[in-house]
Computed example of a mutant assay.
Amino acid sequence: MFLSIDFEDFSHDLKRDLGVWDTGPLRVDALWRSYEAIASFLGSHGGPNGQNVTFFCTGVVAEYAPDLVAHIAGQGHEIACHYHFHDSMDRQSTQTINEMLMRAKDKLQEAANTPVRGFRAPKFRLNRDTPEQYKLIERHFDYDSSSFFETADQCLQFSRSMSLSKLQLIPLLSSQYKGRGPQIRLGGTYLKFAPDTVARDLIAQANSSGMTPQIYLHPYEIVEPKEFWVRHRDLARLGTGKATYWAMRQNQWLRFGSTRLLGKLARLIPPDGLSGRLDQLVTAQ
């Protein structure tokens, strides 16, 4: 089982999503504390091969906190790309996407002093109806981990439909629990709310369907909610109604289930530990 971290600044990204600003200061101290908590967890629970995992970092983190990205890479973790800003790519033009991919990759490689081979789209949002966006990713990266499937065969068929020749897809699982109810993913809010029995069943399902089990987490799920909380007054320009809604909505990401998340993850890790970095799965072309 692999673990990956979508390493982003929730407070910065929420303000950008809501139009409060284009970009602004990052909560670098909170990002450092979240990394230290993750590193401590891996030291205790990662096992012999799972001390190092993959961090999908936004380019803006590398731009404003290059020493943090350098430290993460220096500790042996893989630095992969999570776009430059945490924007929804499916709403953007081909030109903008190409510019943001290049900008992010350059900043990440400069900070990490290591090649950046992998990519994951913010919010896992890509236009999957046509190949254009995947072709742009293929131009800059060796693998992509932005897609969800139920079986390895579905992933292979999708890769062929996108006419991908070099880009390797390393997907995540999305499936119903025992064939009933909504689609559930192994990570984020889904993992926080799912009982251990459901998560274990999905891990077993991934293995049986030829998928590599992978759990994804975020920095804001690791530390105290206040670390990344956007205050009501910072949202005031949205108007009273929207500001109140988004001030309360943050509970879903920052508060509910977060204090139990690392304990749950520890119970899900196999006896021999985590499997390591995602770039280990990239086959030679």
Rank of each mutant, 00 (worst) to 15 (best):
G19Y: 09
W21Q: 14
W21P: 03
G24A: 08
R33D: 11
S34M: 03
A39R: 09
A39M: 02
S40H: 06
F41N: 13
S44F: 05
H45T: 06
H45V: 07
G47V: 04
A62K: 02
A62T: 14
P66F: 09
A70M: 08
A70W: 15
A70D: 02
H71L: 10
A73P: 10
G74K: 11
Q75M: 13
C81P: 10
H84I: 07
H84M: 10
S88E: 12
M89R: 09
D90E: 04
R91C: 15
S93G: 08
T94S: 13
Q95W: 15
N98P: 10
M100W: 14
L101D: 02
M102H: 08
M102Y: 15
K105Q: 07
K105V: 13
Q109A: 04
Q109D: 03
P115V: 00
G118F: 00
F119D: 00
R120A: 00
R120K: 01
A121P: 00
L126N: 00
N127Y: 13
R128Y: 08
R128T: 06
Y134D: 08
R139K: 14
D142F: 12
Y143I: 03
D144C: 04
S145Q: 08
F148T: 06
F148L: 06
F149C: 04
T151V: 12
T151N: 09
T151F: 07
